[in-house]
């Protein structure tokens, strides 16, 4: 079996934890630029089944986002009007 599976024509890419594959990507609550990649437009945290993060990094990510929200570096939520 190959790593790449094909299902009826469309290609499902294997997801990789970006923090594991890129050691330079810092996971820190003081780096909202990085964290912003892992929330939706409404400010919700993207689940790991979609982002492909590993469990360890998803835990740390959640913690970092929570902290960043506390000090207004990241939004808790955004209204659609904005």
């Amino acid at each position: 079996m190959t790593a790449r599976r094909r299902r009826r024509g469309f290609h499902r890419r294997r997801k990789v934890c970006r923090f594991c594959s890129d050691p330079k990507l810092v996971l820190d609550y003081k780096e909202p630029k990085v964290l912003m990649n892992f929330i939706t437009e409404r400010g919700k945290i993207i689940p790991r089944r979609i982002s492909g993060n590993c469990a360890k990094h998803q835990r740390r990510l959640t913690q970092a986002i929570s902290r960043a929200r506390q000090i207004a570096l990241m939004p808790f939520t955004t209204t659609s009007a904005q």
Binding site: A3, R13, R14, K15, V16, C17, R18, C20, S21, D22, N37, F38, T40, I46, I50, S51, G52, C54, A55, K56
Partner: peptide
Amino acid sequence: EEPSQEEVSAQEPPAEEAEPAPEEEAEPG
């Protein structure tokens, strides 16, 4: 914490796949 899982995922996908990941994560959301 991550004995096998991390290694496996590190081997299978070649480097090219590491970067496109972010695009994909947004769409299925």
